[in-house]
Nucleic acid binder design. Sequence first.
DNA 1: CGCGGGTTTGATGATGCTCAAGCCCGGTGG
DNA 2: CCACCGGGCTTGAGCATCATCAAACCCGCG
Lengths: 196, 196
Amino acid sequence: MLPPGADHFRKAIEELTPLSDEQFAEVLARFELRRFSKKECLWSSGDVCRMIGFVTKGCLRYFFTDNKGEERIMYFATEGWWIADLNSLYSGKPSLYTLQALEDCELLLSTGEKFEEACSAVPPFGEFYGKKTRRSYSASVQRFADMQSESAEEKYLKLLKNYPQILQRVPQHYIASYLGIKPQSLSRIRKQVKGK
Amino acid sequence: MLPPGADHFRKAIEELTPLSDEQFAEVLARFELRRFSKKECLWSSGDVCRMIGFVTKGCLRYFFTDNKGEERIMYFATEGWWIADLNSLYSGKPSLYTLQALEDCELLLSTGEKFEEACSAVPPFGEFYGKKTRRSYSASVQRFADMQSESAEEKYLKLLKNYPQILQRVPQHYIASYLGIKPQSLSRIRKQVKGK
DNA sequence: CGCGGGTTTGATGATGCTCAAGCCCGGTGG
DNA sequence: CCACCGGGCTTGAGCATCATCAAACCCGCG
């Protein structure tokens, strides 16, 4: 019996690397379905991150607290996203980030060890992981580039265009944090945009 | 006969994964020493990036042109840095970035294919590549976090503290671009800082 | 009905940009 | 050897964007 979301999980892997049924079963066996309720933290800053996983249901925020004491959201993880703090996971050092459920969530979770097992037991999955990491890295660099060169309004419009679903399910002040501005500023930008 | 910088190259790899002499030779055989003179571009935006390499001498800038036509420097690559546009290298799509020598440079360069060969011929090197990519990814996320939460002056002071050598060898207006500000603003910040 | 978190709105302020001029200094040609 | 040129750095004045402080508003919930 497959856990709910296993099909989505498989598709997400096979977008980069195809797997046989047995190979997929080998991978899936290293993951466990876990549910989290709204506001629950999968880990918090100061904890060591010991998990790596895939969101099958719900929405989470990955954030840190800056040196002025402000929470800053790096990204929202919704269905189809992978989550982990690779730095903490591999180094065993405390994470600077917190991953918190914004809704009731379901994830397929693995540990560092089991995930490593899956990579060596199923070489195409190891391949997938390598590709995925490189893509995420490139995306991170690209986002850095965009963030620097765009105004708050441009960033908001781009979010509106690329991830309209996010805006439907996440409170404004979290969107503001994600965009790197204050809720008041986002409110003004929205008024501005609406008038056009 | 080893090319100049091969020892540095080996050390950089072995910081993450030890190699036997033969293994290192296998890897090195897939790289070629190339020299570039000041202002030369290893590739330019619009080109497909077909190289991956290691800087043994000199200093380069990795930059793109934003939607306002301004060049923005993502990083400086000096001795000990790896360079590539992984996105372009693997997808075969044109790069958005340009890599230009700021001084006469020497690099150990490989192609996508030869590099791939090295990874499979020498498993510890494949391991190294995986670790290195994960680290770069984490560093990129961290830099994004810092860039958002710090003022221009804080960013400048952090650069001054962490990479004072860069400031010695790179013109101010490039530093400004790296920090995401205009040369005029950097000039004012420097005056400000000096007065303290 | 009243509380409380989230959003909106207004007034003011800080940071960094734009436009513009001047300065410093190394390189070139007379 | 000196005058001139040009790029890069500095400085000044005014401006745009976003932050801050503060108050009002909205609305779901106890």
